[in-house]
């Protein structure tokens, strides 16, 4: 029944005129000369300081900030690329494919390291690992797992504790979840064993990190796998009202690190302002002041040594291939949807 619901959701025409946004906010003065339309997969709370800082520098520009999931963002932008000026997403594969397909404008004036950009059109500005987040209060006396292997062993040892209390991305819905899953699968077979075990524990599937963390805090979930570290850390630092504490674990054997990327639409009518925004974003990232750049900047990457950062390379398009995707989703479903 759930599969059918998802399939209907997938088949529903996305990017239609009546787009449903998770959030939509307008910054800057009323009746500004230009209004930048930014379509993003990042929560407004993370971007508000960045946009405010940008508007301080360019006072006659207003910014309309639209938030949606990575997959919907991709579909919406592909269907009407002229409507958006800047595209920000955590799904590196979809972003790279957009740039590869000629949707991104080339901005040759931006000074950015080679590994953090692609074709002078796709610019990475954060470095965020996928984490295992554990509700330590609910876990009680059980040990906190540090690797995927430990997580598997813990779940196998206490199936009753974990049943129905494990969450992860629904890779069919979330572009970022799909990216993390495919990169994990590429790195190690452990991923499939983990999915098998999670499937046997009746894993809960989520579209977004935010909801997973919300359920962790409410105690509905004990463990969430492949949650965006940045979101989790923001939550973990503020001890919740009900006394639940969260632990954010970067799997020590092969942490998968994603870079959030921005591109300027090839068909934007406000190329200069859009380019200014990206330049400003990268400058803030370099400065790394948490007051106006609340996301983990690129420069922080070397501190968490041993991370395998997903590189900006045409190979990112491999798992976007319809055949490959079909095979992968089928395998993933076989692993995780055993109960149905």
């Amino acid at each position: 029944m759930r599969i059918l619901a998802f399939l209907i959701l997938l088949a529903a025409p996305v990017g239609s005129i009546a787009q449903i946004w998770e959030d939509r906010q307008v910054f800057g003065p009323e009746g500004a000369a230009e209004t930048l339309r930014i379509i993003s997969s990042t929560d407004t709370s993370f971007f508000a300081p960045i946009i405010s800082d940008y508007i301080t520098t360019y006072p006659d520009t207003a910014v309309e900030y639209l938030v949606t999931s990575t997959a919907e963002l991709d579909a919406a932008f592909r269907s009407s690329p002229a409507q958006y000026d800047v595209v920000i997403s955590s799904a590196m594969d979809l972003q790279l494919k957009l740039a590869n397909d000629g949707f991104a404008a080339r901005l040759s004036d931006i000074d950015h390291p080679d590994w953090a950009q692609w074709r002078e059109s796709l610019f990475a500005f954060t470095s965020e690992p996928a984490a295992i987040v554990v509700n330590t209060s609910a876990l009680g006396a059980l040990p906190v797992p540090n690797t995927r292997q430990e997580l598997i062993e813990l779940m196998r040892a206490h199936p009753d504790t974990f049943a129905g209390k494990i969450g992860t991305y629904d890779v069919r819905q979330s572009g970022l979840g799909y990216l993390f899953a495919t990169q994990d699968a590429r790195a190690s077979e452990t991923f499939w064993r983990l999915m098998e075990v999670m499937g046997s524990m009746d894993a809960q599937l989520y579209c977004c990190s935010g909801e997973m963390i919300r359920d962790l805090r409410s105690g509905q979930l004990l463990v969430a796998y492949n949650v965006l570290g940045s979101y989790a850390l923001a939550q973990a630092q503020t001890v919740s009202d009900d006394g639940q504490t969260l632990a954010v674990i970067l799997p020590s054997e092969f942490p998968t690190t994603m870079m959030r990327t921005a591109l300027v639409s090839q068909q934007t009518a406000q190329l200069q302002s859009a380019a200014n925004f990206v330049t400003h974003l990268i400058a803030l990232q370099s400065a790394g002041d948490p007051a106006n750049f609340p996301l983990p900047p690129l420069s922080a990457a070397p501190e968490t040594a041993g991370q395998t950062t997903i590189s900006l390379n045409p190979a990112l398009m491999t798992y976007l291939d319809a055949l490959k995707r079909g095979t992968f989703i089928k395998e993933w479903e076989n692993a995780i949807l055993q109960g149905e």
């Binding site: 692609w118 390379n313 055949l323």
Partner: peptide, 24 residues
């Protein structure tokens, strides 16, 4: 089934970040 490896496309990475297209 066409489960082509990640390397198929990653070997096409160039310093100039050339675009890659394919059709099956």
């Amino acid at each position: 089934q066409l489960d082509f490896p990640y390397a198929s496309l990653s070997m096409l990475g160039t310093p100039a970040d050339d675009r890659v297209f394919y059709a099956i």
